[in-house]
Nucleic acid binder design. Structure first.
Lengths: 166, 166
DNA sequence: GCTGAAATCGCCTAACG
DNA sequence: CGTTAGGCGATTTCAGC
């Protein structure tokens, strides 16, 4: 996938599908100002080239019974590449861990976790995360309330940069 | 939205649409084991009741030119409700800030930010975030590399709990 | 090369049992 | 919840720029 350069229509398609991933192709074509067949071809190309990684329904965790969200800062004993990879692999296997990012600075990883209740999370924390190989320290912060949770990227920033470079 | 209790089929629908939000209704119906019309009725109900908040294409930030991801820990001077709300409102207006969560513990908020490059982020950090009203301290951590970034909720955890309570 | 138009096929989505 | 059925969208084919 050679990551072809995108034109204005491609970017518009990405922005529209980020905002509504279930939009019909006909509606999408109308919004970006071309007819349906080339629009569908562009979408397929964007998918194949990795610009679009997938489509997901955005489900409210609270409504489904996931009352607890926690950020966990993890420090490891060894930062050798093999040990970092091993920890990342463990995170991928833990379904309570939704995100795992390696950071610079004092802490090695930040994890975003979700759980049905505090006791489920505490069990995971003590029996799995803190107990895992190579984990030196774990600091957790409960999410009191969510103020913003936008998936995806800010297309307005991209546009601002493009006009500046034009 | 009365938040009706969900049955197995509803949960299966949510899990399938979380995994592939662009699946056709016919395919979805086939997977959950009912015919298409009742399946569509269930999806509409799940949308109306707030279980499904929307559908989004998952776009690769890197491919689009967003090279920088940063977590920012923000401490405020005043934690009065009006001041908390004011800060949350500001975060919602900043498009570089994709997530803003209020936390317990030493830090008041965690922000997940995305930017095209470091200088764009630094400008935001110094001119906007640090300079904002009521902001006392900001600590930032750059994401060196992402190890896991799963949207949504872990349905396997939900199922494990349901069988235990059955 | 791309786009757009036409045509086919399959899906969406009522109405009814 | 299922079946039927009519209309619309998706997707291929082909012609034109």
């Amino acid at each position: 996938m050679p990551a072809t350069r995108l034109d204005d229509i491609d970017r518009k398609i990405l922005a529209e599908l980020q905002a509504d991933g279930r939009m019909t192709n006909v509606e999408l074509a109308r919004r970006v100002g071309i007819s349906a067949p080339p629009c569908l071809r562009r979408v397929r190309t964007l998918e194949e080239q990795g610009y679009i990684r997938g489509y997901h329904a955005d489900i409210d965790p609270r409504e489904l019974g996931f009352e607890v969200q926690v950020f966990a800062m993890v420090g490891l004993q060894s930062q050798a590449e093999a040990d970092l990879s091993a920890f990342e692999a463990r995170c991928r296997a833990w379904s309570l861990v939704r995100e795992c990012h390696m950071l610079n600075g004092e802490v090695d990883f930040i994890l975003k976790c979700v759980a049905p209740d505090l006791s489920t999370f505490q069990r995971f924390l003590t029996e799995e995360l803190t107990a895992a190989d190579n984990v030196a320290s774990v600091k957790t912060s409960l999410v009191i309330r969510g103020a913003k949770d936008e998936p995806g990227v800010p297309f307005d920033v991209l546009e601002a940069r493009l006009v500046r470079s034009a």
